[in-house]
Amino acid sequence: MSLNYQAVGWNRQKKIYDRTMVLGVLLYLGLFIGITATTNPTATAETLMIRGFGTAALLLLHIILAIGPLARLNPMFLPLLYNRRHMGVTMFVLALAHAVLAMIQFHAGGDQFPLISLFTSNGDYSSVSQFPFQPLGFFALAILFFMAATSHDFWLANLTAPTWKRLHMMVYVAYFLLIGHVVLGVLQAESSPFLAGVLGLGAAVVWGLHLTSAWLEKADDEEGNGEGFVDVCAVEDIPEKRARIVCLSGERVAVFKYDGKVSAISNVCRHQNGPLGEGKVVDGCVTCPWHGYQYRPHDGASPPPFTEKVPTFRVKVSEGRVLVDPRPLAPGTAVEPAVIAENAAEELSS
């Protein structure tokens, strides 16, 4: 949680995460470059590195994009999401190495400034098969640069979470640009069906996971509208110290049950818009599943010295049913938790 900023707030889990990630990157580069160099002795070092860094970045991008929906489908994957920003920055560094080497190799040392050459050397913008693929990679890299440069919590706080989130959703634009970069580039020269097959399989996995998680999330939404309190679920539908997510007037609300009480707060974490309703009440605080940001369930405020606040909702329990007023209160507004009646609690425990 953000009280002050430092370059990286290292902890044991982040160190394990980063070590494993670096091991994976080195494993990939070592195998790809080693096998290519062994089977093709005339391949030049620049080509080996350009291909190695480029394919490593693309593979890492697929892994990054798969982690989000995987964690929604199975919370056991959440540790992979915890430090995903470092994976994103690593992916950008690999893509940058690929781009710099390609710029030197293909555009430097000629009769035109390399950046101008990038956009003008192949001018077939009206052709599909001959469409210049390198500018697509350039624009994707520009997006990845802005994402990497603003990945720190400093920017998250200063840009505000919704703006930061919108900026970082541009990763999907970068993904499509990179698919175009590969399909209109190297795949135009390579004849092996395995290369196109691997790319297609990667796209199928990424989008299959996204569509499945979106469909399940939509199916799980409890809809409620109208004035006054809305019946959202039975008390027994909410596991202890967990929440039920309901959609009220278009906004997701996390309804938590804990210590014989029920409270409702916004489902959207102030940090990265993480799903608070998929979190848990830990040490008396709602804890975000993504990065562990915490909020008190009765007033939606982070415990001191932290200052984050989320909107709260009035809630009551009647005849074993949970009722929520769909009108959000200002972030940090204290709301008396609804007490689960003694007999209802006994009914639940019997």
Binding site: L27, I33, R51, L59, F77, L80, S192, F194, L195, V198
Partner: peptide
């Protein structure tokens, strides 16, 4: 759970590296 899945992922990464390296056209 995560250890198992990460090991599986590393095996997958190694497999993709080998497949892509071997599927490239032969260098002249």
């Amino acid at each position: 759970f995560v250890k198992g899945k990460v090991l599986l992922l590393l095996v997958l990464v190694a497999g993709v590296a080998a497949l892509l390296a071997l599927a490239q056209g032969t260098f002249a």
